[in-house]
């Protein structure tokens, strides 16, 4: 297991467990948890909080025929057999991300967005957007601020910004106060999964024009 230094916040894990995150954020959380045992264990703990609350937060009587109706549902559909675990395929995309991409890295339909950077927007509900970004080694993403929250999960390569270095499995959680300029490290192209719940605000005029054209 790779060494991961930057983890999910309690706020995000609670939102994921409660089911109140936008789908785009859920995908980033599920992808990070697939790579990070520390956050997987924390996720189970937040689920345990939900279990305790459900167990103790009060009951609503069910109708007299509710059990019989449930037994009828059970009789109508067969028991789900757990599929054999898929053979471990060496991929930088964990299973939840592969589901949204519809395959592995070679299935991504990249679109160039300028400066050598490419993106592929993944289809989710419209409360937030999630995209794959490919930043060539040594290249900087234009410095930008955020109207809301931005999650950036590194899948390959690494980037640095004003705060720290982010390598494979690391997640950066940026809020609206943060303005940063990520630069991809030398070596492999940096591939990230990035979600925002508001459009990014680029500092320069050319990136702003590109933003209108490409919808980042």
């Amino acid at each position: 297991m790779k060494s991961i230094n930057h983890h999910l916040t309690d706020q995000l894990l609670m939102g994921y467990s409660a089911g109140s995150l936008p789908e785009a954020f859920n995908l980033v959380v599920a992808t990070h948890v697939s790579l990070c045992d520390e956050c997987r264990a924390r996720m189970h703990e937040f689920d345990a909080v939900g279990g305790v609350l459900m167990d103790e937060a009060g009951i609503e009587a069910v109708s007299d025929d509710c059990l019989a109706a449930t037994m009828a549902l059970i009789a109508a559909a067969p028991v789900e057999v757990k599929p054999a675990p898929a053979p471990a395929v060496s991929s930088i995309f964990p299973a939840p991300l592969q589901d949204y991409v519809g395959g592995d890295l070679d299935a991504v339909e990249w679109r160039r967005i300028g400066g050598g950077v490419s993106q592929a927007i993944l289809q989710t509900s419209d409360e937030a957007t999630v995209r794959l970004l490919r930043i060539p080694a040594g290249v900087a993403v234009p410095d930008h601020g955020h109207g809301g929250m931005e999650l950036t999960l590194v899948l390959q390569g690494a980037f640095r910004d004003e705060t720290d270095r982010f390598g494979p499995g690391d997640i950066e959680v940026a809020n609206e106060e943060m303005v940063h300029q990520p630069v991809a490290e030398a070596g492999l192209d940096c591939i990230c999964l990035s979600a925002t719940d508001a459009p990014l605000r680029f500092s320069g005029i050319l990136p702003r024009m590109a933003q209108r054209v490409f919808g980042i």
């Binding site: 409660a18 995150l21 909080v49 939900g50 929250m149």
Partner: peptide, 11 residues
Amino acid sequence: AYFGELTHSEI
């Protein structure tokens, strides 16, 4: 938060 009355940014 768990009963869905808070958005993720309100948590």
